[in-house]
Amino acid sequence: MRIFSKGFNFSQDGPGNRLVYHLSGCNMRCPWCSNPEGMEKQAGKDYSVQQIVEECVSAKPLFFSGGGVTFTGGEATLQKTELFEVLKELKNNDIHVAIETNGTAKYLSELEEYIDYIIMDFKHYDDKEHLKWTGVPIDTVKENYERRCNLGRAQHIRIPLINGVNAKNPEKFAEYFAKFDTKNTVFEFLPYHEYGKDKWKTPYQIKNGFVDKKTIDEFNKIFKENNLVLVKT
C-alpha cells in the first residue's frame, strides 16, 4: 500500500480519535486540493499490508472516543487490492474503519462490508461542471450516493464550498439530495481554505475561492428547509 502521509486526528475524519492514512494517487484533479502532493500514485512510500495492520493494532490505545482508522487520499479506493486485504485484517482485529472517498469507485459496494463509516465527497450537482473542475464524470458518485440512500445505509456527504466553483445554487444541491431517502445521511459543508496552497508545485489556479458567511448561511438554510441533516466536524 502506498501512503504519502499518516497521523492522528480527532473526529475530523470519522468519529473519535483516528489514525489517518493518506493513500497515494487520485483520479481527480481538483484545483483547490489541499493534498496535491498525494495526487500521483508514485508519491510517498510503500508499506506491506502486514506493516499497516501491525501499526493499526499497536495504535489501539489511541482509538479513544469511538475512534479507529481512516483511509483517505489521494483517493483511497484506487489501491483496491491492498485496501481489501487491510480492511479484512482490521475487521478481524475489531478495529473501527472509516473511508473518505470521492465516490468514484464502482466497486465501493464490495468494500462496504468491511467499512464502519463512509465519508463521501460531492463536489457538484451538475454533471458538466463536475467534469470540468475535477476531470471525472459524476455518474458513479451519484450511483453510490443513491444506492446507499436506497439501502438506508449511513453516510456522511461532504461538500467543499468554493467561490467561483460551486458556491451558488444551494437549492440545486438540495433538490438532488432530497430526492432520495436521507434518513441515515448527514451533510457537511467544507468552506474553502488555502492550507494546501503552498504545496502546489504548479501554479495555483483558484483565485478568490473563499466563501462569505452569507453564502454558508444560505446553504445551511436551504438544506435545513429540505430536511437534510447538517453536521460540522
Binding site: K6, G7, F8, N17, S58
Partner: peptide, 12 residues
C-alpha cells in the same frame, strides 16, 4: 514527524 499520536504510542 508523524504527530502527537505516534509520539504518545512510542512514549508509552
Amino acid at each position: 514527524s508523524n504527530g502527537l499520536g505516534f509520539r504518545i504510542l512510542s512514549n508509552m
